[in-house]
């Protein structure tokens, strides 16, 4: 579904990614873990097109998308749930969701998508006419996920979805992601909450200092000595 080859990205003079390779297959949950500043968010931003790569190729469903602007990539059925629940605070919950379905493909399936989002997050339905800025942190994350789902994606990328959430809410969010995967979404997850993320994932990659240093099945990574020491504190 998603393939990244030899990706190199820099901010001005500063090189952040030094040649990253990874793939996400259909119906998988793949987690990218790594410390702060490793380049996880950069990777996601480059895939969706917010950042321009220096080198390397990005394939979505086998199609090279390097030269496409963001909205053209979204048309290829990929969605990003950005870090820190970036929602539109001055719009209502409903308007936020409507915007997720901005593209014509998504609008065709607007009704059923809206229904499934409300089914997934009944809380959003209760608050549909409220300004999104008045939602709590957990609800905002629900809204951000709901908005991404409204674009009828096949691949959903999550950038630290549990950031700043209470532990029980974080578990809820990851459970939701797992549930989404079971209903047919392919998922690329970036998390600092390594243990919980690996638990729900099929495979994982470890990025450090802009380089891929480890990859493998999730349970294999959990048992890896380096991962244990550096991320799980065991």
């Amino acid at each position: 579904m998603l393939e990244v080859k030899n990706l190199e990205v820099s901010y001005g003079q500063l090189k952040v990614l030094w040649g990253i390779n990874f793939t996400v297959k259909k119906d998988e949950i793949v987690t990218i873990i790594g410390p702060n500043g490793a380049g996880k968010t950069t990777t996601l931003k480059t895939i969706i097109g917010l950042l321009k790569e220096d080198k390397g190729e990005i394939y979505i469903k086998g199609e090279k998308v390097n030269n496409l602007p963001v909205h053209e990539r979204v048309k290829k059925k990929i969605a990003l749930v950005p870090e820190g629940c970036e929602i539109f605070p001055y719009l209502t919950v409903q308007e936020n969701l409507d915007l997720g379905a901005y593209l014509s493909d998504a609008r065709k399936r607007y009704k059923e998508n809206l229904e499934s989002v409300f089914k997934l997050f009944p809380r959003l339905k209760e608050r549909r006419n409220q300004l999104a800025g008045t939602l709590s942190g957990g609800e905002r994350q629900m809204l951000a996920i709901g908005r991404a789902l409204m674009s009828a994606p096949e691949i959903v990328m999550f950038d630290e979805p549990t950031l700043g959430l209470a532990p029980n809410l974080a578990v809820e969010v990851l459970k939701t992601i797992k549930g989404l995967n079971e209903t047919g979404y392919t998922i690329l997850l970036v998390e600092q909450n390594v243990k919980m993320a690996l638990k729900i994932s099929h495979r994982g990659y470890v990025i450090e200092n802009g380089r891929l240093i480890l990859s493998g099945e999730a349970d294999e990574l959990m048992r890896n000595k380096h991962v244990k020491e550096a991320y799980l504190g065991l």
């Binding site: 917010l50 048309k75 901005y102």
Partner: peptide, 24 residues
């Protein structure tokens, strides 16, 4: 829809872009 998209750009241009709005 055009107006709604503009409000989005105002509130958060990055998110607007990732929602598939051709912001430019």
């Amino acid at each position: 829809r055009f107006g709604l998209a503009l409000k989005c750009i105002r509130d958060d241009e990055l998110s607007a872009e990732t929602s598939g709005i051709p912001t430019a």
